[in-house]
């Protein structure tokens, strides 16, 4: 059976306008087409200014295309009447945890989305408790957000999206401002969303070790897709990724370098375990 497509970009172009009506060079999206099947964990990679954040904002109608169409669960995002339904379907988590929390108490913030949707009070309470438990922040429900760590704030933001019962979450570099521990917390939460709740996740990032965990990786450059495949096949293109100003995981790079030097090792290595196993295989044979 064909997977149901939840977000569909059809030949989408978009450019930011400066004050004088000129277009700005960064963040342009040009002739962009993409299908995101329901339940997928998709990572979008690219350097700053390649248009990946623009794509994120096009996904729930924060931006609407100059030409082409973005369809969310069958709804055109440029249809003004559907805007709330689109955002009910596709939630969003941003980079700066401070600038997306609206309430002075954690649980009130999680309740914000459902309140806006006019959900009944008892139902909101249920959703808020459930969402906070899911991200492991239930004990913090009565706290003030400004006393939380960055990772905890992002988890509250994610809970806010869960409480809206969205089918899909777009995360725009949610870990860029976090320390390694916070990044780990957020990545674990994202995986849980996808695996346990079946929520479609679109993760915009430039951390390769995060993209490795996705089902599919799309690499963008100058507003276009340059690579689109499962992580293993994408990261094989070490040279190409480096030329695009991107990293590959160290294990992948090590294998690549060894192979370049004539060392007979597989070139589709993703993590330290695979890398060590491959090296052992070669060295022990001798």
């Amino acid at each position: 059976m064909e997977d149901k497509v939840i977000i569909k970009f059809d030949n989408v172009s978009f450019a930011y306008k400066a004050d004088e009506g000129e277009t700005v060079a960064t963040g342009v999206v040009d002739g962009f087409s993409l299908n995101v099947p329901e339940g997928q964990f998709l990572a979008i990679l690219g350097h700053n200014g390649c248009g990946k954040s623009t794509v994120a904002k096009l996904m729930n109608g924060i931006l609407v295309p100059d030409s082409g169409t973005v369809t969310v669960d069958g709804m055109d995002t440029s249809d003004d009447e559907k805007v709330i339904d689109v955002r009910k379907t596709v939630g969003m988590v941003f980079q700066n945890p401070d600038n997306q929390i609206v309430a002075t108490i954690v649980e009130d913030d999680v309740a914000f989305g459902p309140e806006n949707l006019g959900v009944a009070p008892e139902e909101i309470r249920k959703r808020v408790d459930d969402a906070l438990k899911a991200v492991g922040m239930y004990e913090f429900r009565g706290r003030e957000p400004h006393r939380l760590s960055g990772g905890q704030k992002q988890r509250v933001a994610i809970a806010g999206v869960i409480a809206m019962n969205t089918k899909c979450v777009v995360m725009d570099e949610p870990t860029a401002m976090l320390d390694p521990q916070g990044r780990q917390e957020v990545m674990d939460t994202i995986r849980m969303l996808n695996k346990e709740r079946g929520i479609t996740v679109i993760l915009i990032t430039h951390y390769m070790d995060e993209a490795v965990k996705a089902d599919r990786v799309v690499v963008m450059d100058k507003g276009e897709i340059v690579l689109d495949n499962e992580p293993r096949k994408v990261f094989k293109n070490v040279e190409k990724l480096k030329n695009l100003g991107l990293d590959v995981p160290q294990a992948t790079e090590l294998a690549y370098r060894l192979k370049q030097a004539g060392f007979p090792i597989a070139d589709d290595i993703l993590d330290e375990k695979e890398c060590a196993a491959a090296i052992l295989k070669v060295l022990e044979v001798k």
């Binding site: 160290q250 294990a251 330290e272 375990k273 060590a276 090296i279 052992l280």
Partner: peptide, 17 residues
């Protein structure tokens, strides 16, 4: 967290290399 290549070497070491 040590760099990933260091982990590769640790695994190799634990496998006797």
């Amino acid at each position: 967290n040590v760099p990933q290549v260091s982990k590769v070497f640790e695994i190799l070491k634990s496998n006797g290399m």
